[in-house]
């Protein structure tokens, strides 16, 4: 293959962002009640939304 390899950021940016969102949701819902229960679940749900997006839109 002659294509150039992707750099660190191209490979890891998306997983790092998902990691940060999930972790914020996991801990946020533990530290605060009310609004944070919903927000925490929403943040922790982002990986699943991205997964659904990839399975539909990134199929080759």
């Amino acid at each position: 293959m002659s294509r150039k390899d992707l750099g660190f950021r191209a490979i890891f940016d998306a997983p790092i962002i998902l990691f940060a969102l999930s972790l914020t949701g996991l801990i946020g819902a533990l530290l605060e009640d009310g609004l944070w229960d919903g927000l925490g679940a929403a943040l922790l749900g982002t990986p699943l939304l991205v997964l659904a997006w990839a399975l539909i839109r990134r199929r080759r």
Partner: peptide
């Protein structure tokens, strides 16, 4: 993950 994904955009299936 890095060597496996070095030529695939994130999420490729």
């Amino acid at each position: 993950y890095a060597p496996f994904m070095r030529r695939l955009p994130f999420g490729t299936v």
